[in-house]
C-alpha cells in the first residue's frame, strides 16, 4: 500500500469521526433511529405477556435479541443505500470525486461511520433491553464474545451488501425498491415470531438471507440455551450461521469495488443536475 493510499484511509477515518459527530448532534438523524426502535421496544414490552408453545421465556424477551439482529441488517443495508443515493443527488459524491483520493476517503469514511453507528445502536438496544426484559442472559464472557462476534460478522456482511445495492440504485426515488424487500424479509426471518411457525417453503426463503441468521445469532448470544429448542432443528446452528453470513460478505465484497468504481465513473455535474430535476418533477 503506498503512503498516499494510507493517507486516503486515514483521511476517510477522520471523515467518519466528523460524520458521527454530525449524526449525534443532528436531532433529525437521532430521531430517525430512536423513533422506530422505540416503537419496536414498546411493542415487545406488550409481547412479554405472551409466550410461544410453553417456551421458558416470553415472546417479548425472545424477540428482543432478534430486534438487535434486525437492526444491524437494516442499519447496514439502508445506511449505505440511503447515503449513496442521497449523496449522489446533493453532490457529495461528485465533490469527493473532484478531490485527490476523495472517493476512497468518502467510502472509507462512510463505511466506518455506518459501522460505528450500528455498533453504538446495538449496544444501546442491549443496554435498554437487558433491564426491561426477563430471561435474557448476558452475564458471562462467552455470551459477550458471541454477541460481539455476531455483531462484527453482521456489520461485515451487510455494509458491502448495502454498498452494492446503493451503487446499482442511482436515484433516491427508487429507494423503495430496496426498502420494501428488506421489510418483507423481516416477516419471513422470524424476527417478531419464531420462523418455525411459517410454511416450509417460506422458512427456506428466510434462511437464504442474512436477516434470519443475524436474529438467530443474537438469540444465541442472549437467550438461555434451552431456548434453542424453539429454533429450526432444535439447535443454534452456530457454524452454519457464521458460514452463511461469511458467504454474503465475500460475494458482496467481491462485487462492491467494481460497482462503486462504475458509479464513480458515471458521476458528473450534469448527472447530478438531471437526478435533481427528476426528483423535483416527482415531488
Amino acid at each position: 500500500m503506498s503512503t498516499n493510499t494510507l493517507h486516503e484511509y486515514r483521511t476517510g477515518w477522520k471523515r467518519a469521526l466528523i460524520e458521527t459527530k454530525v449524526s449525534l448532534t443532528s436531532i433529525g438523524d437521532l430521531m430517525g433511529f430512536i423513533m422506530p426502535t422505540g416503537i419496536a421496544i414498546v411493542v415487545l414490552l406488550f409481547m412479554q405477556n405472551a409466550d410461544f408453545e410453553g417456551a421458558p421465556v416470553s415472546l417479548g424477551s425472545m424477540n428482543m435479541p432478534s430486534l438487535i439482529g434486525m437492526n444491524v441488517v437494516f442499519g447496514g443495508i439502508m445506511g449505505m443505500v440511503g447515503a449513496l443515493a442521497m449523496d449522489r443527488t446533493n453532490g457529495t459524491l461528485l465533490r469527493a470525486k473532484s478531490m485527490p483520493g476523495g472517493m476512497t476517503g468518502y467510502l472509507v469514511g462512510h463505511l466506518a461511520s455506518t459501522a460505528m453507528f450500528i455498533g453504538a445502536s446495538a449496544v444501546a438496544l442491549l443496554a435498554v433491553g437487558l433491564p426491561l426484559f426477563d430471561g435474557l442472559s448476558f452475564a458471562t464472557p462467552d455470551r459477550w464474545m458471541t454477541f460481539l462476534a455476531v455483531l462484527v460478522m453482521g456489520v461485515v456482511a451487510t455494509l458491502p451488501i448495502g454498498a452494492v445495492l446503493g451503487a446499482i440504485l442511482d436515484n433516491p426515488r427508487n429507494m423503495g425498491l430496496v426498502m420494501l424487500p428488506v421489510m418483507g424479509l423481516v416477516a419471513v426471518s422470524g424476527i417478531f415470531y419464531p420462523i418455525t411457525a411459517l410454511p416450509g417453503w417460506l422458512q427456506g426463503v428466510g434462511q437464504v438471507f442474512p436477516m434470519y441468521w443475524m436474529g438467530l445469532g443474537m438469540r444465541h448470544a442472549l437467550l438461555p440455551d434451552s431456548m434453542a429448542a424453539v429454533e429450526i432443528g432444535g439447535e443454534w446452528r452456530t457454524v452454519t450461521m457464521f458460514a452463511v453470513l461469511a458467504v454474503w460478505a465475500v460475494v458482496s465484497m467481491a462485487l462492491a469495488p467494481r460497482l462503486l468504481r462504475r458509479m464513480s465513473r458515471r458521476e458528473s455535474g450534469s448527472a447530478v443536475a438531471a437526478r435533481r430535476a427528476d426528483m423535483q418533477r416527482d415531488w
Binding site: D87, G91, T92, L94, R95, S98, R276
Partner: peptide, 14 residues
C-alpha cells in the same frame, strides 16, 4: 485542479 460546479449542496450538516 480546482472545481466549482453550478449547484453543490453537499455535506449540509457539517
Amino acid at each position: 485542479l480546482g472545481v466549482v460546479l453550478q449547484e453543490w449542496r453537499d455535506n449540509g450538516k457539517w
